[in-house]
Simulated scan of single mutants.
Amino acid sequence: MNAETLTLNKNSWDEAAPRFFGRTALPEYGPLAPLEDELNLMGDVTGLNVLELGCGSGHSLQYMERRGARGLWGIDLSRKQIETASELLASSGARARLFESPMEQDPGLPHNYFDLVYSIFALGWTTNIDRTFANVNAYLKEGGLFIFSWEHPFYNRAKFTDNGLILNKSYHEEGPYDHEAWHTPAIMQQFKVSTYINALIKHGFVIDNVVEEVRLPEDGTETHANRWYSYDKARFLPTTLIIKSHKKSNSVT
Rank of each mutant, 00 (worst) to 15 (best):
L61V: 06
L61K: 02
L61I: 11
L61G: 04
L61A: 12
Q62W: 15
Y63G: 03
Y63M: 07
M64Y: 14
M64Q: 08
E65H: 14
E65R: 07
E65D: 14
R66V: 00
R66T: 06
R67V: 03
G68T: 10
G68V: 04
G68L: 08
G68F: 12
G68Y: 10
A69H: 09
A69Q: 02
A69G: 14
A69W: 05
R70W: 08
R70H: 05
R70M: 01
G71P: 00
G71A: 04
L72A: 07
W73Q: 00
W73A: 06
W73E: 00
W73V: 05
G74W: 11
G74P: 12
G74C: 10
G74Y: 07
I75N: 04
I75A: 15
I75M: 11
D76K: 10
D76G: 13
L77Q: 03
L77T: 03
S78Q: 11
S78E: 06
R79P: 01
R79H: 12
K80M: 13
K80N: 09
K80I: 13
Q81E: 11
Q81R: 09
Q81I: 01
Q81S: 15
Q81Y: 15
I82P: 03
I82L: 07
E83F: 09
E83I: 05
E83K: 06
E83H: 10
T84D: 10
T84W: 05
A85K: 00
A85R: 02
A85Y: 05
A85C: 11
S86E: 14
E87N: 08
E87L: 15
E87Y: 11
L88G: 01
L88V: 15
L88M: 07
L88Q: 04
L88D: 02
L88S: 01
L89G: 00
A90R: 15
A90M: 14
A90W: 09
A90L: 06
S91W: 13
S91D: 15
S91N: 14
S91A: 14
S91T: 03
S92A: 10
S92E: 12
G93K: 03
G93D: 08
A94G: 01
A94N: 02
A94D: 04
R95A: 13
R95K: 10
R95W: 07
R95G: 05
A96R: 00
A96G: 02
A96V: 04
A96E: 02
R97E: 10
R97Y: 10
R97P: 01
R97K: 13
R97D: 14
R97S: 10
R97H: 15
L98Y: 08
L98N: 01
L98G: 00
F99Q: 07
E100S: 05
S101F: 12
P102M: 02
P102C: 11
P102A: 09
P102F: 10
P102Y: 07
P102T: 07
P102L: 03
P102S: 11
M103V: 12
M103S: 09
M103Q: 04
E104H: 03
E104C: 01
Q105T: 08
Q105I: 14
D106I: 03
